[in-house]
């Protein structure tokens, strides 16, 4: 049958897919979506542990994580919009004005 370990392995696979996306993509929007993917995979582990230990705390944490992720998406997308308006940049490679 399905055990907690299965959910943890799935969560880990999704998390590392997100990390891999951060490594191989240069597009700001796609990198931001990879961050959302990683947050989601952690949520899955939280809910699996909540079900396993019969404890509601994990679900409450997921509630708060979803809310913080929504706030983070709002601010992050506003920053991406601002970068587009001021610098016409889509890739992080174009944002190198701090480079010596």
């Amino acid at each position: 049958m399905i055990q907690p370990a299965h959910y943890l392995i799935l969560s880990l696979l999704l998390f590392f897919t997100g990390v891999l996306g951060i490594f191989i993509r240069k597009n700001l929007l796609v990198m931001f979506m990879c961050i959302e993917l990683m947050l989601n995979s952690v949520n899955l582990a939280f809910v699996a542990f909540s079900r396993h230990f019969q404890n509601l705390e994990g679900q409450l944490f997921v509630f708060f994580v979803i809310t913080v992720a929504a706030a983070e998406a709002t601010v992050g997308l506003a920053i991406i919009l601002l970068i587009h308006r001021n610098r016409k940049a889509h890739d992080i490679d174009q944002l190198n004005s701090l480079k010596g």
Binding site: I2, Q3, A5, L8, I9, R51
Partner: peptide
């Protein structure tokens, strides 16, 4: 993680 062999118990919490 594959070393973890716990299985889900029937839900008895609210």
């Amino acid at each position: 993680i594959t070393k973890v062999t716990d299985s889900f118990t029937p839900l008895n919490a609210d």
